[in-house]
Amino acid sequence: MSGRGRHGLLATALGALALLCAAASTMVGYAPLDVAAAAGDLLSGRDTLGALVLLELRVPRALLGLLVGFSLGIAGAAMQGLLRNPLAEPGIVGVSGAAALGAVLVFYFGAAGAFSLALPLGGIAGAAAAAGALLALARGNTGTTALILAGVAVNSLAGALTSLALNLSPSPYAALEIVFWLMGSLADRSLAHVGLVIAPMAAGWLLLLRAAPALDALTLGEDVAASLGFDLRRLRAGLIAGTALAVGSAVSVSGAVGFVGLVVPHLLRPLVGQKPGQLLLVSGLGGAVLTLVADTGLRLLPVRPELKLGVVTAILGAPFLLHLLLRTRNPNP
């Protein structure tokens, strides 16, 4: 079918663009670096400073840009498909708020410096707790609306507890550290961060991609999807688990990077004929592109200290979305 062929072409193009952006991301940094020479050193096993910068700073940052962006994009598309609402974003089931709270608690109890992965592990624990609560709800015969309300409740609670941690924070410096972390960033992450999140993220992506036909069926509503043989309870549980794995891991390593999961599916939806199943993969790739462009761009700006990634994605994404809405506003009903 031509639709399928076009989808394959779009996915290939976006995938190539994402890899290109990741490569470009490794070229940009604060220390001058001959990337080609450093890569040569790295491949031939020479322990030069260049090789070290590339391996310990540039490559992890580019890889995390890919992974985090893909996770946010694909989960945003999945949530919009499940809720059949273009306003849904990956955090709507509460996992991102809970992941942020988990990391903030690590800060609060002063454990962030204990070992390098303390923060992301705290985030993952938070996301897992939220996902566990929602999955327990989903196992009962809970409708989609009730699940979302539960997600909103989890998000509000996590937000309140995060504020409480700020409120009670032992020093203004600690509070500032928490606030900065919450803004989202990929700076100063290592390969250990990549190693920590890559497996849970991939598992999450698989769970989300597997739901593609069911999300297509949901185009015509839950009753039609059920009559087409899809088990909605299993679908909701799979999507919550997948989102928790992908987005919980993403927030754990990057903080809250807003807007990618909302704006990317929206931008790409017309290019896949509005089909929610086909939107998943391209949204992930588009999310990776947007995140990498934002993260590379903020390092090119002459602003120090560097802008936070979450700030830049929102500054890039929001006007883009507004422009799109104004341009595509349909004069006919």
């Binding site: 639709g3 059949r84 297509d216 069926a217 949901l218 185009t219 015509l220 509503g221 039609v224 087409l228 939806r269 004929g273 509005q274 089909k275 929610p276």
Partner: peptide, 14 residues
């Protein structure tokens, strides 16, 4: 109920 603006053919294909 139709949630996304898919084409007639894509809707029927579901």
């Amino acid at each position: 109920e139709v949630n996304w603006s898919v084409t007639v053919e894509d809707a029927v294909a579901l």
